[in-house]
Every structure is written in C-alpha cells, then in structure tokens.
Amino acid sequence: MVDLKVTLCGIELDNPIIPASGTFGFGQDFAGLYDLNRLGSFSFKGTTLAPREGNPTPRIAECYAGMLNAVGLQNPGVHKVISEELPRIATFFSKPVMANVSGFAISEYVEVGRLLGAQEQVGGLEVNISCPNVHGGGMAFGTDAKAAAEVTGAVRKVTDKPLIIKLSPNVTDIVEVARACEDAGADGLSLINTLLGMRIDLKTKKPLLPFTTGGLSGPAVFPVALRMVYQVYEAVKIPLIGMGGVSSARDVIEMMLAGATAVQVGSANLINPFACPQIIDALPEVMDQYGITNLQEIIGGAH
C-alpha cells in the first residue's frame, strides 16, 4: 500500500495532483467527465477585479511537444467568480480550491486576494505575477524581485490563507525572485508559468499570434521547469508547487524529487481531458516500480 498524501502549506492533500490554472476553467468542463474530488485540489482560472474579454484570436499555436497560448486572462471578474463560479464549484468539488489571483496593479491584487481569500471554499491563494500575455501587469511584477516582494507583502496583509506566489521563468535568476517572495511573507511558490515564445505564419510571413508572443507550455518545457524547481528548492524553505509540461506519473515523481511538494498538470489536460485521474491511477504502480512507498518522503530527494 503506497501513500499519496502530501501536506501543502498546512493543507493535507489526498494526492499531489492539481490541475493548473488556465487549463481547467472553473472545473465545469471536467466535472461531467470524472469525479473532481479525486484531485488533490485544482487551481481555477486567473481572476482579475473586472471582467476581461481577453486577446483577439488566434490565441493558440502549436510547436514540437507543446503549444503557445495568448489567451490574455479572459475571466468573468472576481465578483462573478464569487457569486456564480464558486457556488457552481461547490456542486461538484468538496475540497478546498486554489484561487488564482491576477491583476495589473498592486491594489488590484490586494482587492482580488482579499475577496477570494475570504471565501470558505478557497484553501489558498495562488498569486499570478507571471502571466506573459497581458500588457502592463502580470509578468511585469514577476520579473522584478522588488515588485514581486511588494505584491506578496501587500496581499499578505489582507489574507490569512496560504499565500502562494506563481513565478515567471522569464527571468535571469528565478532564485532571486523566489527569495524575495519568501522574505515578503509567501507561504509557498508555484513554478513555472509559461515561457515566452512565438511562431511565424509562413503564409503571411508575420507573427502568428496577434500580439507577437505567447506562453509556451507542454512537455517541451518540462526540463526547464524541473531545473528551476531544483534550484529554488535549494534557496528557500517554503514549499513549492512544481509545474511545466508534467504529463505522466514519472514526471510527477521527478518534480517531487527536484523539490515540489505538490505538482500541477496544465497543458496535458487540454490534449487529454482525463490526464489528471490517469496520472493519479498510475502513481502507485510507478512508485512501486521505483521502490517508493510514501510520496511526502521523496520531496527534494534528488538533492
């Protein structure tokens, strides 16, 4: 009998598998496919103060072993998330959910974080300072250690819920940003968000995505994500949620050995809507194969 339980920022998860924000909506498109309570938790769509329509299309491009997206934080806004999405989530998910907090100014992060943090269903806040697809916000906070610390400190003041900062890989030194967030009061770190990339349409000879760049995700980014989790694990004491191209139970175990306490699955949900339950089902056998009986015990084992 293997043990899949992990404890993330004081919350006990039945298993470390968490669908990543932006690949799972508010759960509604998956709720009819399998029992979402099988998941450790899920992180819902990045939520801003006001509703956002997002970017023009095309928003999606493909590449070898991955994809680019430029959705641009389309979401109904925090008030509708609280009045409509959270009650709907309650109909199919009885565990604490992770609220992904997005914004364009510190005051917006604070307000969205305060409102979502006050909801009983919300187990923790995942503050997205790393969205590469919006201008004048998102990633601008995640690529500067001082700005990242300011967002972290400001949201810290308005919530007692676990505060997890989602980091951008589009930096020279992710460790510096990670340390700044830890010092500013973060309870955990999520990494990595998507890598900035682009494609050019050979027919038009112009960038395929309307604002030139998009966020790269999928198996192509897994080794980069793994390396960053490994580096940050050595530098901070707070728990990490590892993500970036995770597609199998083996990937999950690698992430945990690198230092992740929990693991988010993103793009894999899009090409296989059953990716998460299949990974959870596969974990015991893969653990057994490598002589692992308890997942909590392997965290950071590669160091």
Binding site: G22, T23, F24, G25, Q28, D29, F30, K45, E53, G54, T57, P58, R59, I60, A61, M67, N69, V71, Q74, N269, L270, I271, P273
Partner: peptide, 27 residues
C-alpha cells in the same frame, strides 16, 4: 472555425466576441 487548443472549453483559446459576451467556438 477558429484555432483550438482543447476543443472542449477548457483553454478558452477559441473565443468569439458576441452580443452575449465572449463565447467559446468549441463549447
């Protein structure tokens, strides 16, 4: 028609802007 990521509503990649707000071509 629109470029799609998933085809079942999860990625919101294929949004069309309508009189009822943004809707997903796939969903």
């Amino acid at each position: 028609e629109e470029r799609m990521g998933c085809g079942f509503g999860a990625c919101v990649g294929c949004t069309v802007f309508t009189t009822e707000g943004p809707l997903r071509v796939c969903k």
